[in-house]
């Protein structure tokens, strides 16, 4: 099974984080469906030519965020509930990210409109055309 993840060693971002981000973006783009089985740690490590512990770390991260579910002896699956987190938790997580983004971007000298425009353009890259227009 090949889920076509793209990683870039030496980019400064740890590989396990790159893998987790890639799985998330593959999910958003519809390349991964809810309930779909993910490659085993061994398979993915071999495919990408990386240390298996790095894949374990990426899967742990995704499991903590409830995007991935492990079934004993069967492997890892993309979570199927629409909202894997409780409503309060979702709110909290997005708030925390928005908070960090606001701080960092303001510190780097971005204005409020510029920050929103950056976010908008990232959203457009991830969502199919129709949804981002509405």
């Amino acid at each position: 099974m090949n889920i076509q993840l793209h990683i870039n060693p030496n980019s400064g971002t740890p590989l396990y984080r790159q893998i987790a981000d890639e799985v998330k973006s593959a999910f958003l783009r519809g390349y991964l469906k809810p309930g779909q089985k993910l490659p085993s740690v061994r398979e993915l490590a071999s495919q990408l030519g990386i240390n298996p512990t790095t894949v374990v770390k990426a899967y742990d991260l995704l499991a903590n965020e409830r995007l991935l579910i492990r079934r004993q002896g069967k492997g890892a699956f993309v979570a199927d509930g629409q909202q894997p987190l409780l409503p309060g938790e979702r709110q909290e997580q997005v708030q925390e990210l928005a908070h960090r983004l606001a701080i960092e971007a303001l510190r780097l000298g971005f204005g409020p409109q510029e920050i929103l425009a950056e976010v908008q353009s990232e959203i457009q890259k991830l969502l199919p055309k129709k949804e981002s227009e509405s």
Binding site: L15, A45, S46, Q47, G49, I50, N51
Partner: peptide
Amino acid sequence: LKQLADFLSDPNRSLVFSTHIVTDVERIA
């Protein structure tokens, strides 16, 4: 790289490799 990844799938195995190729370090080490 692929075979080293396979080799390391058993957590009892250990590897030491000297290298100048930094991307290999990030992949395997």
